[in-house]
């Protein structure tokens, strides 16, 4: 393996990490802030990819981004309305929407499960053309992703300090308080999920255009992968840190996840292991602190049993 190869691998990981960090930021909003585990993420990611691809194929590469985001918002709206206005449990609402989106996505692609964007003008090819000849020509993908992520982080930092943002955070932090104060929790959940799903869809749209194809499975497992990245990010900046740093932590987590994955591939881990690895990371990150808190009790129980007698029951 040459140095140039390694560098290119690192660059791919960086670019992929940045693109998927948009989904991680979406989960930061829905999971960390609003305390809703949005299981429609996979379907919404694919929706962003298919809608973005269709609009790009129609010859509007720039329009593909807002189109994908609008589609994501609509999907988030459905999930949110199901759980706030129609009495569907929040996890179930996500699963239902996710299942429905499978059909929607196939329909968007025109009754196909695969779409090729090889000859299509995308935001990346446009940017490549704009940058050709400059020193940054080789970095156009990373640059595009970096720009989008920067804008998203900036937006989130602004948004979460507005009146609406504060209300969304309080909804996740102390629902008791929110119910007895003048915050309409249905509204905060709806707005929060709409914004989050817009970013998830944008993330899918960019990934499709960057790899020049859409597959109906492009989003499968995204929610677990993004959760893993989010929890890795939490290790760097936990919930006591300022919001700006925490959003940055989410981005770092996403990039780190892709780097570790790239490294594992180098060490001949088969590519299909990605999802198992992300599942294991999520399990460790969530149950680790819980198990650690139980450890002293187990030790005492074990000691009591060793000594025997009095501890028996």
């Amino acid at each position: 393996m040459s140095a140039a190869n390694l560098l290119s691998l690192g660059q791919t990981a960086l670019e992929q990490g940045l693109i998927s960090s948009l989904t991680v930021l979406a989960l930061f909003l829905s999971y960390s802030m609003l305390n809703v585990c949005d299981l429609s993420t996979d379907g919404c990611f694919t929706l962003g990819a298919t809608v973005g691809a269709i609009v790009a194929l129609a010859g509007h590469p720039w329009l593909s981004l807002p189109a994908a985001m609008a589609a994501g918002m609509l999907s988030g709206l459905v999930t949110a309305v199901l759980q706030t206005k129609m009495g569907v449990d929040s996890l179930l609402a996500g699963i239902i929407v996710n299942t429905g989106l499978y059909s929607v996505n196939i329909a968007v692609m025109g009754n196909a499960s695969f779409m090729n964007l090889n000859q299509t003008e995308t935001v990346f090819t446009v940017l490549k053309g704009l940058l050709s000849g400059s020193v940054l020509a080789g970095q156009y993908k990373t640059l595009a992703a970096l720009l989008t992520v920067g804008l998203t982080v900036g937006f989130l930092c602004w948004f979460l300090h507005t009146r609406m943002g504060l209300a969304i955070r309080a909804t996740g932090d102390n629902p008791d308080m929110v119910r007895s104060s003048s915050v309409n929790t249905a509204l905060t959940t709806i707005v929060g999920l709409c914004v989050a799903n817009a970013f998830t869809a944008l993330s899918g749209c960019l990934l499709a255009q960057s790899q020049k194809s859409v597959n109906i499975d492009i989003g499968s497992g995204m929610v677990t992968i993004a959760l893993a990245s989010l929890l890795i990010g939490n290790v760097f900046f936990n919930r006591t840190r300022p919001l700006g740093l925490r959003t940055l932590g989410a981005v770092i987590g996403a990039i780190l996840f892709r780097l570790v994955y790239a490294l594992a591939l180098l060490l001949r881990m088969p590519a299909y292991m990605l999802k198992l690895v992300s599942s294991v990371i999520v399990v460790i990150a969530i149950s680790g602190p819980y198990l650690r808190s139980r450890l002293p009790l187990w030790k005492r129980q074990l000691n009591a049993r060793r000594k025997g007698g009095a501890g028996e029951c």
Binding site: A170, S180, V183
Partner: peptide, 14 residues
């Protein structure tokens, strides 16, 4: 009556 993970200032702002 208060959101524990938000700052004093943010609670008051809300």
């Amino acid at each position: 009556g208060t959101a524990p993970n938000m700052s004093i200032e943010e609670n008051l702002a809300l």
